[in-house]
């Protein structure tokens, strides 16, 4: 009787009808600490990652802005870029180190940022696993390929 009046106030609902003896299923709060909840981790990885983001960000501002300035604005701008221009720059160890540093910092910075985005937005453990797997594979591949190119670059290649 009482459940009739409540449903009348709330309005008709589709699907299964529930009452006091048969309530709608309880949705377990995600945060609930159950026996299956993994033990808290003790380590400084998250702190190191957080610090790395700040420090690499500061260095990258200089590296990337300098890179853009040289590539796109100074001395003829974008039209001068060609194989000869790159070969000329990489003849100097200074630019090799610059580009290497920029490659590693930018890739790790971006990968770590995406890692936190995945942690924050991917809700299911499996989705997280796959997205992170893809991310780490792409990161390692790009870093290794880029490093290989910088170190084995041959200006006389035909």
């Amino acid at each position: 009787m009482s459940s009739d009046t409540t449903s009348a106030t709330i309005g008709p609902v589709e699907g299964a009808q529930y009452d006091a003896d048969n309530p709608a299923p309880y949705i377990e709060a995600p945060r609930k600490r159950t026996g299956k909840t993994p033990r808290a981790t003790r380590g400084n990885f998250e702190m190191a990652a957080w610090l790395f983001m700040r420090l690499s960000g500061v260095v990258l501002v200089v590296l990337v802005l300098g890179h853009l300035l040289i590539q796109l604005f100074l001395d003829g701008g974008v039209s001068k870029i060609g194989f000869a221009f790159v070969a000329g720059r990489w003849a100097s160890p200074f630019w090799q180190v610059w580009d290497l540093l920029m490659l590693w910092l930018a890739m790790l910075h971006g990968a770590n940022g995406l890692r936190t985005v995945i942690n924050d937005y991917a809700e299911r453990a499996n989705t997280r696993l796959w997205l992170k797997g893809l991310l780490y594979t792409a990161t390692v591949f790009t870093i290794l390929l880029g490093t290989l190119v910088i170190f084995t670059f041959d200006p006389n290649i035909r």
Partner: peptide, 14 residues
């Protein structure tokens, strides 16, 4: 925003 598990598993704005 109302929810009553004894009536429905859906929420209703009233």
């Amino acid at each position: 925003r109302r929810f009553n598990p004894e009536v429905s598993d859906a929420v209703v704005w009233e």
